[in-house]
Computed example of a mutant assay.
Amino acid sequence: MVTQSKTVWWALALPLLAVLIWSMNIAVTRYVVDYISPVSISFYRWLVAFLVLTPFMATRVWRERVLIQQYWKKLAVLAAFGMVLYQGLGYTAAHYTSATNMGIINAFIPIFTIFVSMFLLKEIPNRFAIVGSILSFLGLLYVMAQGNLAGLIQSGGHLGDVMMVIAVFFYAFYGVFLKKWQLNIPLMISLYIQIIFALLYHLPFVLWLGLEAINPQNISSVLYAGIFPSLIAPLVWMLAVQMIGPNRTSIFMNLMPVFTAIIAYIWLNEAWTVYHSIGGAIILLGILLAQKKPQTHIKASS
């Protein structure tokens, strides 16, 4: 009994670690804007991940080439949404908004996933999901408006926040496509092939915009992005899903705004304001409400 209890607590630490790594990456993304372009760090990130995985995956991928041929088109779509559109827009958004705001907007992934599922999977959201989504959206608008909704309407929104909202929307598509297709392919092979496609997608942008050199000011950020959020966090997250289930694991994503705000406050000297507290609380309340399942009443047979 004691051993089982220890195992559960150890398993709960896995999603906590993954969310902490992803939260740190948001702060890294904001920190490195002065030292490297969005296209460069995005390309280098997946290049580092590719170089780290290749010695372990090359032979295995060759053995499974027939299986990969069955799914390569879908893996290409997943890479476009999850690794290029989401990450690329995130790196660009960091030039125009704070890490704190990026962390708060990232918490919207479950909400957007509900509505993307409605269109792609024909899953009709329940009343809790609808009310929770509206509530979270109002909280997001409050944060983007910095507590002044009239000012947000007049200014048309803040570019970085809007770009981050679009990025999160693309990531919701990534998650729904994964659920819709249920690819019967090993996770590591799936990740590796998606990384290859991500590098290929970056080539036109690299040729057009150029590639900035790695230097002492940006190398640590590039290495962190290429190893920890790209490889370690997904593996830890997948292990957590296997050990404690997808529903319990997904709840930990709600901690990302909190972790990001703490890291940004300590490292980047970003202020946590009243409108962050109010808007963040509204968003979190909406997310928790959206995940609530309606009770099913079973009539007793007479």
Rank of each mutant, 00 (worst) to 15 (best):
V206A: 06
I232C: 11
Q182N: 10
A213R: 10
S220F: 07
G210S: 01
K179A: 15
Q194A: 10
S190Q: 13
N218S: 06
G175Y: 08
F177M: 09
I185F: 11
G175I: 10
P186Q: 10
N215G: 04
A233Y: 02
G226Q: 01
N218W: 02
L183V: 15
Q217E: 11
Y192D: 03
L203T: 10
L187K: 07
G210T: 01
G210C: 00
Y224G: 04
Q217T: 07
L207Q: 13
L211F: 12
A233K: 09
S221Y: 05
F228W: 11
Q217C: 00
P186A: 11
W208K: 03
Q217M: 08
L209Y: 14
I196F: 05
A233C: 09
K179I: 02
L203R: 02
I195F: 15
Q194Y: 09
A198Y: 00
V206G: 13
I227H: 01
I185A: 01
N184S: 14
W181E: 06
Y192R: 06
P216V: 02
L187I: 04
P229N: 13
V206F: 06
I195E: 12
L187Q: 14
K179L: 12
H202A: 14
S190W: 02
L187P: 04
V206E: 04
L207V: 07
S230R: 07
I196L: 12
L231R: 04
W208H: 04
A213H: 14
F177E: 02
S221E: 15
N215V: 00
L191G: 05
P234W: 00
P186D: 15
L199A: 12
L187E: 04
I195G: 09
A198I: 02
L183C: 07
L223I: 14
L209D: 08
V222G: 02
I189Q: 12
W208Q: 03
Y174H: 10
Y224Q: 06
I193C: 05
H202F: 08
I214L: 15
Y174S: 02
L211V: 07
G226P: 11
Q182K: 14
I232L: 14
W208S: 03
N218C: 10
I189V: 15
